[in-house]
Design a protein around this nucleic acid. Structure first.
Length: 473
RNA sequence: GGCGCAUUAGUCUAGCUGGCCUAGGACGCCGCCCUCUCAAGGCGGAGAUCGCGGGUUCGAAUCCCGCAUGCGCUACCA
């Protein structure tokens, strides 16, 4: 199988695009085939170099390596539409000569007016453009006058059946399809011409893409037929929508892969989550590693229902993946986040911090507030936290703790724990009431990572200082 | 307007070659256990007349028709 992902460079990789890319990649890997990346930038006004970089970066981050395409080359290039112009105009001219297409001299304004009129009575509207019936002499004269023209495809009567791999057969009546433009008056190709030629040129065997292309597929099928080329197989994926059933928009969730990467979602979690957006391995598996995804993925189990972007489930899943990382791996992943937050961490300290926060994170970013207590500055106290330090029990506990900790020769979690438990018992305080003041003194917060480990991480000096300070409150 | 696609609990989904479904799994929620807080983990629980209305059948979430709703396409956008 040869499959492709063909994004238009709109500035970022949309999660829907990411899912499409993933499914193509999965199919390629599953079949031992080839995954191709092609940039659809026929509309030159929209394309920028940065936009392409953003997309390729995100794809690479997800681990969806392409076998052919920008950056890696391949025998079927070029892999950018703007570099394939000659292919398009050549094919369009051929269709013109063969009488399968015609020149249209209408101005866009005229066309727009006509479309407007059609809306009034769509049933009687004619799908062929008047220019289709121009005589050769008329065409020659207009051309001689230098009237610019676009090239339109002649849609013939009949029906076109799309044998869709995920939806089954979908029948279209050609009568509802307008003679569509192949080559714009400026000589550039439209999408429908370009995809067909690109997929042909790149020997694509399976086109797996978004639902929004389903209605265009009959046009492409007609083009394949006119060109005398065997069409690829098609599979159309449903859209990704928000929990309100509407297309994903910024109102409900952020739609770019980059956004999730920056918040600290893991690539593996994203891939797993994306895979389940419209596909399932079986009736109960939700955590699926890459290997199993590759072996288990098939278009048979892809649903045609719209897939909903469920951020709560993604959060949960990301937590699962974070917990499955080794401390060392997680430490490495955390470095950029902690560094960005301004924490200075040597690797030894980081190694001790990781187990403290590992099972308390949904995204890597969560580690930042969790570890804020180990910053150099002693934390400020909220009003109710300060109040909790004022009780008699709290003051006795803090004072006794200070003494006990001061005399500890080894300031590690285990030693700290037994020392503090001993103190609590001696004072007749239940653990939960005894340790809370210490926690507040150390972290400034009523909620924190495990206390004893946190103390050890903070270090003896700072710990003692903070307890002393708390006693003065 | 036309054409196309879709419609299972708060949410995501399995099932859709009809009976094994008095609808399975997951997220979330609630409760209990564990426990230095928060998490994580373990155990248990509530929650769906399978969009609505007809039909076919001994039997339908599953097949057919109609309706409703949502979305997509209907561009010299991709």
């Amino acid at each position: 199988m040869r499959l492709r992902f063909a994004p238009s460079p709109t500035g970022y990789l949309h999660v829907g695009g990411a899912r499409t890319a993933l499914y193509n990649w999965l199919l390629a890997r599953h079949s031992g085939g080839t995954f191709i990346l092609r940039i659809e930038d026929t509309d030159q006004s929209r394309y920028t170099e940065e936009a392409i970089d953003a997309i390729t970066e995100d794809l690479a981050w997800l681990g969806l390596q392409w076998d052919e395409g920008p950056g890696v080359g391949g025998e079927h290039g070029p892999y950018r539409q703007t570099e394939r112009g000659a292919v398009y105009s050549e094919a369009a001219c051929r269709l013109l000569w063969e009488g399968k297409a015609y020149r249209c001299f209408c101005t866009p304004k005229e066309i727009a007016a006509r479309h407007e009129a059609e809306k009034v009575d769509a049933r009687t509207a004619r799908r062929e453009h008047a220019c289709r019936f121009l005589s050769e002499e008329q065409v020659a004269r207009l051309e001689a006058q230098g009237v610019p023209s676009a090239i339109r495809f002649k849609v013939e009567e009949g029906t076109t059946i799309v044998r869709d791999l995920v939806r089954g057969d979908v029948v279209f009546d050609n009568g509802i399809i307008e003679d569509f433009v192949l080559l714009r008056r400026d000589g550039t190709a439209t999408y429908n011409l370009a995809v067909v030629l690109d997929d042909t040129g790149m020997a694509i065997t399976h086109v797996v893409r978004g639902d929004d292309h389903l209605s265009n597929t009959p046009k492409q099928l007609m083009l394949y037929a006119a060109l005398g080329v065997e069409p690829p197989r098609f599979g159309h994926l449903s859209m990704i929508v928000g929990t309100d059933g509407k297309p994903l928009s910024k109102r409900f969730a952020d739609v770019s892969v980059g956004f999730y990467r920056e918040k600290g979602y893991l690539a593996d979690a994203m891939v797993n989550f994306l895979s389940l957006l419209g596909w399932s391995l079986d009736d109960k598996t939700t955590i699926i590693d890459r290997e199993s995804l590759i072996t288990g993925f098939s278009l048979d189990r892809v649903t045609s229902k719209p897939a909903v972007w469920d951020i709560e489930k993604l959060d949960w899943m990301n937590g699962v993946y974070i917990r499955s990382k080794s401390d060392e791996e997680l430490a490495e992943l955390l470095v950029p986040f902690l560094r960005r937050a301004g924490y200075d961490l040597d690797s030894a300290r980081l190694a001790r911090a990781v187990p403290l926060v590992k099972e308390r994170m949904k995204v890597l970013e969560d580690a930042v507030p969790l570890l804020s207590f180990m910053g150099a500055a002693d934390p400020g106290l909220e009003e109710d936290a300060r109040k909790a330090l004022q009780t008699d029990g709290a003051r006795r506990m803090l004072a006794a703790s200070l003494e006990a900790l001061e005399s500890l020769p080894v300031f590690e979690a285990a030693q700290i724990e037994s020392a503090l438990r001993e103190v609590a018992e001696r004072l007749g305080l239940k653990p939960r009431v005894a340790f809370q003041p210490v926690r507040i003194a150390i972290t400034g917060n009523k909620v924190s990572p495990p206390l004893f480990g946190s103390l050890a991480l903070l270090g003896k000096e700072a710990s003692l200082r903070r307890i002393e300070r708390a006693l003065k409150e």
